[in-house]
Design a protein around this nucleic acid. Sequence first.
DNA 1: TTTAGTTTGTCTAGGTAGTCTACAAAAAAG
DNA 2: CTTTTTTGTAGACTACCTAGACAAACTAAA
Lengths: 401, 401
Amino acid sequence: MTSKATPMFEARASGRSSLSTVLGLIHEHRAITRSEICSFTGLSRSTVAKLVTTLVNLGFASDTGAEQLDRVGRPSLGVDASKEVLAISVHPEVDYLEVKAVAFDGTIVHSEKLLYDDPIGQDQALEDMVQVIDSLVTQLETSDTPYRILGIGVIVPGQINSLTGIVRQAPNLQWSEFPIRDLLTERLSMPVFVANDASLGCKAEMAYGAAKGATDVVYMHGTSGIGGGVFMNGTELKGFRGYAAELGHMRISSGKELDYSGIQGTLEALVRRDDLEAVLGLKNVSDEDLEIALLNNRTPESTALARRQLEALGIATANLANIFNPEVFVLAGFLRFLYRFDQNYFHRVIKKHAIPASLEGMRIFVNELGANSMAIGASELVFQEAIADPTKFATPAKRNP
Amino acid sequence: MTSKATPMFEARASGRSSLSTVLGLIHEHRAITRSEICSFTGLSRSTVAKLVTTLVNLGFASDTGAEQLDRVGRPSLGVDASKEVLAISVHPEVDYLEVKAVAFDGTIVHSEKLLYDDPIGQDQALEDMVQVIDSLVTQLETSDTPYRILGIGVIVPGQINSLTGIVRQAPNLQWSEFPIRDLLTERLSMPVFVANDASLGCKAEMAYGAAKGATDVVYMHGTSGIGGGVFMNGTELKGFRGYAAELGHMRISSGKELDYSGIQGTLEALVRRDDLEAVLGLKNVSDEDLEIALLNNRTPESTALARRQLEALGIATANLANIFNPEVFVLAGFLRFLYRFDQNYFHRVIKKHAIPASLEGMRIFVNELGANSMAIGASELVFQEAIADPTKFATPAKRNP
DNA sequence: TTTAGTTTGTCTAGGTAGTCTACAAAAAAG
DNA sequence: CTTTTTTGTAGACTACCTAGACAAACTAAA
């Protein structure tokens, strides 16, 4: 314990710098006035002026003229989030690869989807990702708008070690021990960030969707399995290695049903999209079609099944309410319309199994953001990094002066 | 959204000031050298010198001479945490009221226990607390050592709203909707902080016990019920209203056993201290006696029961491992010797019910801190507040000059 | 014993990031 | 056209920290 070690933590300017705070506000609001920044941050007008000009110089924001009328006093100058600063989101799934480009002001600049007939392995997936991103990058960089790509956000439907960026296990994709972050960083020579799909969905819903403004959120996402994302006090629950929030594997029953990991009586074993499809005589239909079928063609069998699933989901939700005491609970994927099938019943189950105090003030929502939710979450992954240290992501030399 | 609102967050000096950081280090290490502070914080020697002298002037630390020899170079000056700065911990339970005084360097300066024959109500408990603390305060303030009491930390075995300081429900004590923080603050005219017992036990174990150095910790404490404390990424899991970490009420079985809240198949309903006492033919014995009896007088019945309880505890632990991916899992109270009864079996159950990734690197410990653990946690509650803003807790006018 | 090397304390100058004050500018209201 | 309100801007100032020079206190080797 002698001298000259690397400091355990940054003592000075610990937490965020003011530059970060202001850039974060601009990003969150997309458009904001200088005086609003003053009141939000408590910074003085002089400081805000200085910070905004440096952010404009760094290319993250643009100064707009004085807007908003009908109020006494000199109108405040506006600041807009840049439309030219981009993050690229990549979403590999069993039967497709989706790539989008999201601007710093939240607009989706580009979107493409590569469909697969047969599942491809992780090596082929890497090749495809590299190729699609590479061509997208050149396309964007040679366009009329002087786009600036800050990095890549990868949406992975599986467990990710947040420190190493290695995909530990992605059952759908049949990936395992796949060091995707480092491989992509090397091939693309660009900052790459990787996160779990449900965690990104939660992040997006908190930033711009159903859980906007909430700090304590539990999010559950039903696709084939059930993924979870949890944010407590505004920060993501990652755990020691980053595998936290595996909510689907919670055991809630003594039953012998197995989930895909071979564990008995878990939420994932009891609440299954396949079973819902089967009881309706469907197979491999889209969420939209399944929702319509479930909600409109109610049979005794489908009702019984949906109720059984809702009971399991309700018990899990009650457990999570006791464990996390969240402000908002978000249901996404097929859980969204399972909930809508009979939300009163769902609420009754929760009430039966949770401590009253845990439920006080807790609100349950379905996800609001649609198809772009995860892409927005992935872009946040990149943008938050830039916001944390704006000077590090300064504009490179302008091309074609 | 017009101007002059109170700022959403402090933009400047966001996070901790360096003064806090250094004071935190001194408190954590009890004794530390200036050069160690430099290497831990990354601050320059000049800055550390200034900060330490202000902390000494504020009365939180004392300068000691150069110590430690047998190393090359000029020996660094030592700094000791004050032995005169105190926090008082108060622990009301069914049959006793325990009050301790903990110094800033961790030593227990005073300890007393008031025993009750019959459970007293919340109003009488308040009176007793006020009286005991008042006389302790005058006793300490008239002693030879110039003690300085920073505040009171109350250990409550029940649910607490962390914002309002109201005890929502404390089933053992039969308290409910008891605004203990404000009542005590008013009567004692001193800062009062209130927290759940298990949360404080966890805090203490993380600071100085089994979970020292870990940032992601799940703690379970078995008394009559089962309480929980969770810290993720170094900060406490509080949830929206502060009721989070009610781990005992997690439903893990379809059985019909009821816990004391009338909920079926929960951990608390399946793992009961009463049942362990009963199977050994005991009643109302101390933890020490129960531990000896359980571990040394193994009968087929007690083994079967302990195994059943260990299975339930293991399933709950597996769930919590999947949910939190903790680094350290701490078992306290009677769970400590339930675990010791057959820890191999416990590990097997966990392995069966958790995802392998969640368990990687996870360590399971029993609590290390003994009878003083919660008092230390309660003192941390007070001290952390002082550490966050040392100037606010400056020495008042010295008495008897 | 002397000398060199190492590590720390202290002092001074300087930088950075913010504040505070004064004043000008731009709007609404009279 | 003046007053009131609110904002932008510029300059002086402050708190907090760093960097570098130098002295002090130790070990180790000559």
